[in-house]
Design a binder for these strands. Structure first.
Length: 414
RNA sequence: GCGAUCAUAGCUCAGUUGGUUAGAGCGCCGGUUUGUGGUACCGGAGGUCGCGGGUUCAAAUCCCGUUGGUCGCCCCA
């Protein structure tokens, strides 16, 4: 019998990687509460149309990366490839309009059928924050300041820069798009094959082409600035002022666009060059048009998401929580008492590990190797029960408490 | 979907131009030593060399296919 293999692009996370992962989530949870974002949970799968209508039928995510399947009732369902569409659906179907402006946060697994590579998996995980029903640029600012604080608290803000752009309102975006198509059409033959293809499907994407053949044309291409309406220009101005006032550094990147159709106005990415091709560590923007595509009333909203795996890689290896008390039962006759002592220590709130299996004479060595702050040994010497407590980490703050708990434990009882 | 590269013990890896029963370190298990001590020594378990074909007297080694990892492209967090 051969063992089934894990699905391609999925991961089994353990050890320091798992600790890093948990650290990212814990930090996000803490920061999200500081900004008073409310925790929500939404389904891992939705009707396929939730994603196809909101992301856009022609996007790669919808056209070739979704895990879609028919359930037993014949409905087409899809494992969520992103959070925003599902949150928007939940907002509309649960009447969360009454809570507007609604600040929500969540995290969990997402699924995309892509070729796995560094920092990219078929089941991956994101943290996500959204503000729904807020048309003001202050909402964009709050979200960005929160993202900035999160990265700083994770200790990874050094290699990361915030790239910022505006896509303008619907009018700005449409006229810019027309101008871009016209421009790229005029130089079409000199563009890379990929970009010629993009011209048909998603012309804005040509702007962040990595192909050197496209670079010169991208530099000459019309920028959004020439097409911004006064309202859109003012809006973006408020966003940048807010960031400056909050002390968040940013750089303007006129070529920054978003892959999904629903974005308007502010678009941003926190990028690093430390993760190879997967440079975006956190990305998002304003999606004022999304609710309508799902049949709701026009509702302004902003949000971002960040890949937990990518953040965890930047955070680097993190050790598991410290071991405060190690208990070695060096004699089989002391095993049950050692187990009772371990339970007592844990009830006192000490992270405790019990060493009472395998070779009796090596248990002390293994306990010491585990690197505890305090090492307790239970043994039988010359027919007499002996117990010792050894403080290995002189800087351990709760040493006295452990000693008290140790003394209070009734060793005479059997 | 395209390209490159890799796959040997639980882990990290050696294995010379194809040539006997495929090795090391670490880890694990047991023993001896030590006896407030993470020591030293001895021994043990564990591998159909990713999988499937082919070439050959002979394949971990060469060829083809396949699966998976890694790194790019595409796309995206």
């Amino acid at each position: 019998m051969s063992t089934p293999k894990a699905i391609r692009g999925t991961q089994d996370i353990f050890g320091s990687d798992a600790e890093s992962f948990a650290h990212v989530v814990e930090t996000f949870e803490r920061v999200r509460k500081l900004y008073r974002f409310r925790r929500i949970e939404i389904p891992v799968f939705e009707k396929t149309e939730v994603f196809s209508r909101s992301l856009g039928e022609t996007t790669d995510v919808v056209s070739k990366e979704m895990y879609s399947f028919e359930d037993r009732g014949g409905d087409s369902l899809t494992l969520r490839p992103e959070f925003t569409a599902g949150i928007a659906r939940a907002f509309l179907t649960n009447g969360w309009q009454q809570h507007v402006p609604l600040k929500v946060a969540t995290h969990g697994p997402l699924f995309r059928y892509e070729r796995p590579q560094k920092g990219r998996y078929r089941q991956f995980h994101q943290i996500d924050a959204e503000i729904i029903g807020a048309a003001e640029p202050q909402a964009d600012v709050e979200l960005l300041v929160m993202a900035d604080q999160l990265l700083k608290e994770l200790g990874i803000s050094d290699g990361v820069t915030l790239q910022l752009n505006t896509l303008g309102d619907a009018d700005s975006r449409d006229s810019w798009r027309v101008a871009l198509i016209a421009y790229f059409q005029s130089v079409r033959g000199d563009l890379s094959e990929d970009s010629q293809d993009r011209l048909e499907r998603n012309p804005l994407r040509i702007l962040d082409s990595k192909d050197p053949r496209d670079k010169a044309f991208v530099a000459e291409a019309p920028t959004i600035d020439d097409y911004l309406t006064d309202d859109a220009r003012t809006f973006f101005g408020h966003v940048t002022e807010g960031l400056d006032a909050a002390g968040v550094e940013w750089t303007r990147l006129p070529a920054l666009v978003r892959g999904l159709d629903y974005y308007r106005h502010t678009a941003f990415e926190f990028v690093t060059d430390l993760l190879g091709a997967q440079g975006t560590v956190l990305g998002g923007g304003r999606y004022d048009g999304l609710m309508e595509s799902l049949g709701g009333k026009p509702t302004p909203a902003v949000g971002w998401a960040a890949g937990i795996e990518r953040l965890a890689m930047l955070v680097g290896d993190r050790a598991a929580g410290v071991l405060e008390v190690a208990i070695a039962a060096e004699n089989p006759d002391r095993e049950s008492q050692a187990a009772a002592l371990a339970a007592a220590m844990r009830r006192h709130g000490f992270a405790t590990e019990l060493f009472a299996t395998g070779s009796a004479r090596k248990r002390y060595d293994r306990a010491k190797k585990a690197g505890p702050a305090v090492l307790i040994s239970l043994d039988v010497r010359d027919g007499i029960n002996t117990q010792s407590l050894n403080l290995l980490d002189k800087a351990f703050a709760r040493a006295d408490e452990v000693g008290n708990a140790f003394d209070a434990f009734g060793f005479s009882a059997t």
